[in-house]
Design a protein around this nucleic acid. Structure first.
Length: 333
DNA sequence: CATCAGGGCCCTG
DNA sequence: CAGGGCCCTGAT
């Protein structure tokens, strides 16, 4: 593999032409668009969405992969036409791992009816659930890739996070072409572990360079086992994630929810989120964090974060088609 | 021109 | 457990 390392981004575009096509059958109901695309997330060149279609890349099994997913069938009889692109032909066992990984990352096996049953009398949620019935949490990135994202999010306005992310892709990522799309793809942790911090700082990452460096080293040294972490109970998982240098209380809950699918993962509310929740849940300017926490725990218990996810994405979808004045003021671009 | 907060975290006392 | 320092940017 190493002798055959693909060329990096700045040198040339890497064509990954080997393609395997197959159908995936998520547990219904499955809302394709609202699952694959999250309007609240900042845009990033490793994925591309258009109605009914989604392209993304990920560094998985020691290689850059390109995945295309297309909606087929309906919410109640969902079929996802999936194409897996790689540089070399995939062995059966690797293909199987990739398929299982895609199912996991888009949470295709979750039985949403358990959630819907438990909130069927909730008046606030009902119209939202109706609009987005079948939506799941998704992460098209691996744990390592998502850690990078949470780090560039820290203490920065959205615009700057985007800039940092794209600078990283340019310097260290791949540029891959598949299905007539050219997208960025994350690097492997080993390669970033060897980059010195000052070089990274030149990409305007500031003090975050140190975080990325330390975390990449941990992954290069196989100190983090994402697969094993998937079966850990939430408190143990939290403890392990907090041991990562640069990952603190604000980042950890995003990771536990989006990467590890704990649907009750809500322990920290940042000031800008507090304002949004206050408006959406209470129709007030500012409600104390403890009060918000208490209310959602009471109301949605083990589904509280998934419920909030529905409410949150709903307003960001709305923002795409009409102006939501109060929201614009809260999300600093 | 300077100052400052921003979608946090680490480290120190 | 509180508070200073940290990278960079654009707003004031």
């Amino acid at each position: 593999m190493n002798s055959n390392q693909p060329e990096k981004y700045q040198k040339e575009v890497l064509k990954i032409d080997n393609c395997v096509k197959l159908n995936l059958y998520p547990k219904p109901p499955f809302h394709f668009d609202a699952t694959v695309y999250k309007p609240s997330h900042f845009p990033s060149s490793d994925n591309y969405y258009e109605k009914g279609k989604f392209w993304f890349t990920t560094y998985f099994l020691n290689q850059p992969l390109g995945i295309k997913m297309a909606k087929y069938g309906s919410t109640d009889r969902p079929i996802v036409k999936t194409s897996v692109y790689s540089q070399q032909p995939l062995e059966d066992k690797d293909l199987e791992k990739i398929i299982n990984e895609i199912k996991w990352r888009f949470d295709m096996d979750l039985d949403l009816n358990r959630f819907y049953d438990s909130v069927k009398n909730d008046l606030l949620l009902q119209p939202i659930l109706k609009r987005w019935r079948g939506m799941r949490v998704k992460a098209c990135q691996s744990l390592y890739e998502f850690l990078v994202i949470t780090i560039v999010l820290q203490n920065a306005p959205v615009r700057r996070s985007v800039q940092m992310m794209e600078n990283l892709f340019k310097a260290y990522g791949y540029r891959v072409q598949f299905d007539n799309k050219i997208l960025s793809c994350f690097w492997d942790p080993e390669s970033l572990a060897q980059v010195n911090e000052d070089e990274m700082r030149a990409l305007k990452l500031g003090y975050r360079a140190k975080f990325l460096s330390r975390i990449s080293k941990d992954f290069a040294d196989k100190k983090v086992d994402e697969m094993a972490m998937r079966s850990l109970p939430k408190d143990l998982l939290r403890k392990k994630l907090l041991q990562l240098y640069g990952i603190g209380p604000a980042s950890v809950w995003y990771i536990i929810f989006e990467i590890f699918h704990h649907y009750d993962a809500l322990e920290t509310i940042s000031p800008w989120e507090q304002k949004i929740y206050s408006k959406l849940l209470f129709d007030k300017e500012l409600v104390p964090k403890e009060e918000i926490m208490k209310e959602v725990a009471q109301r949605w218990s083990e589904w509280r974060m998934l419920a909030i996810h529905y409410i949150f994405e709903d307003i960001f979808w709305k923002r795409k088609t009409e102006k939501v004045e109060w929201l614009e003021e809260l999300i600093r671009l």
